[in-house]
Design a protein around this nucleic acid. Sequence first.
DNA 1: CCTTGAACCCTTTTT
DNA 2: GGGTTCAAGG
Length: 804
Amino acid sequence: MASTDFLSHLNPSQRSAVEHFCGPLLVVAGAGSGKTRALTYRVVNLILTHRVDPENILAVTFTNKAAKEMKARIEEVFAQRVALEGHGKQLEALPAIDQTRIRSQVWKTYIKPLWIGTFHSLCARILRFDIEKYRDPQGRSWTKTFSIFDESDVQSVFKEIVTQQLNLDSKKFNPKAVRYQVSNAKNRGWSPEEFERQEMSYWGRTIAEVYRLYQGRLAENNALDFDDLIRIPVELLAQNESVLGYWHKKFRHILVDEYQDTNQTQYDLIRLLATNGAEAKAFTKVPENWAQRSIFVVGDVDQSIYSFRMADFTILMGFQEDFGDGLPDGDTRSMVKLEENYRSTETILEVANQLIELNTERIDKVLRPTRGKGDPIYCHRCDNEQDEAYFVVDRVRQFTRQNPELSGGDFAILYRTNAQSRPLEDAFIKFNIPYKVVGGLRFYDRKEVKDVLAYLRLLENPADTVSLKRVINVPKRGIGKTTLDKLDTIAQQLGCPLWDIINDETSVKTIAGRKAKAIMGFTDIVRNLQAQAAADTPAGEIFQGLIDDTGYVRALREVGTDEALDRIQNVNEIYNAMMQYADDEADESLGGFLANASLASDLDSLDEGGKAVTLMTLHASKGLEFPIVFMVGMEDGLFPSFRSNDDPRALEEERRLCYVGITRAKELLFLSHVTMRRLWGNYMPASPSQFLSELPEDLIEGDGLPSVQRDRALSRINARLAPEPAAVKTFSARTRSSAASKKPAGLKRVWKLGENVMHDKFGVGEIVMVFGNEKKQSLAIKFQQGATKIVNPHVESIDLLEGS
DNA sequence: CCTTGAACCCTTTTT
DNA sequence: GGGTTCAAGG
């Protein structure tokens, strides 16, 4: 077989994306159009056909999970080839020992040298080589053993600066809001000074000051946050020609997935690497520049859902101008569109297409179905979130009962906010159905895991005072706040890390008096373990020593509660994670493991197709697919979020998020909303999401859309799903008089201020505010019962009262 | 110094 | 409703 036989699995557009060799290429890839396949095969093709050395390839993925999958798929292609060429057989037909040998050989030759990962993990890797060459504008520097602060570390630093160091009014300067501003500034590539220039007010000056102090704090701790992980390489490449030259020369072929979700700094990084520092346009103007080099980006503007962390899809939209030939679609050689969808039924695609067409900021593109029509979308209206959870569980049970080939892993429940998982979890527990929540509390966010990791970080990086403070009295050693404050004050006055103070016997004795012994007990343990770490002892061995010496597990065992035993389990799990990392990456170093752990996310370990039903946010679902998808909580204010109320661009992003959710489904899609939702303890009325009224009615069944006749809905779904007796009876759909009395859609009325109205649930009220335009109105109504509510007249049943 | 209970945020979305 | 933070008492 020719060396390009693997290309036969591709359609013509995919094939032209994969076979493109040098120069720039933008791949506009709709949901489910096989872009992962295109990326994977492109890497294979570069190596096989064009003889590109794997170590010259840089592929940026959006999640660690995607990186892992991509490596696995590339490995699979190569392993099959070696089996065929070397043994004349399919890999599976060979003895197990040969399979293993082939795989490990392929891994070593082709996979390990590839640079595949997220922006964050790849940058962490670059920094572990080169961070010591970096100086920030204040002349500060970091060492290779830098810590990566996670979000909660960062939050606590901000809180300390805002409320203690600067003593600001936390009403006006909410530490979280300030942190968000600083993060945004960093992702735009703004220094504190630049921020001040952009926001010339007391507010702006104050944020800039916090930003300055925060950066100082990071430097003192020899630490970086997630934003710095990208920002510092960018600054380093911009300030150091030889470092830039090295990486530019190394990464000849750059691939970026989910390009619509890159932000300014990430773009700068890619640009610097690709062009050796030149502006994109200037670089492209000289064709020879691209002689042995390419930049290949894949994305879909309609799936841009991360603008809250400064992702900017106009970067993708500018690619043609930037790197490309800028020619129209028919003539361009620097853009390919993948529009054939292999994932979903025609119905699902039609619904998705019609929804997303309401957005104004897009690249024109449709998803063409390749599969059959499929079943209608089913939209259900529930009384409250428990009712909704039971609806979901009910359907899952019925489907799995009637279709033995289905397992829990074929179902996904998607929601807008993490907090929505609770009622769903309760229902799954009650009916004893295995489920898995993605996101929420990460493994690495658990207290006991953070404690152990803080110890480990301290071994690598003694300047990490945040970690030091976390563990100095864990388990309890009688080192309290007073003692710690005394030591900390001195350290700050001397401008040295806290560790340097407590590591000096004399100082400790002077400052801490009778607590000195407790502190020295702690420093002895840490010093001993640090020596091991410095001698490159494998991470696993250090971990064991740590657990023994600190008595961390012993203390938990003494507590003896179920919770404590769980924690011991999680501590053991860290060891497993270390072994796993050492295996996967052939790296036993503590530093490697720690960097990896800081960047790990819950999604990485998600096992699709397992027994457990997956519960997650719509954001987390990007890139995944499931045969059966439930989108719950389709209510105004929740989805779309109330924060997008008066911001059209934010609303478009919510709509894209809805589009992402819909296009996850392969076979069946369920939508649901509730009439009453519990918020901070008390029930609030909720009206159906405006997105529901934006979907094509003729493709949707069920009692959830006011305009859809219930009869038709019930007949179809009930015909397929036999009714469940007993336990599920309490939540089976019951006739709602209000649903039956709904006005037909299309009868749209322009509502005016001051009109008196009758609402079918809340009674008589007066319109006190009108939002939106004639096409899409929402009303603030002050009801006689007292409450004022914002309602959507297109989906709520409202009548005008005579004489108003 | 550590435990207890009241006050107090909170719900966008995440590498 | 629920998890975290902060003050008072042991």
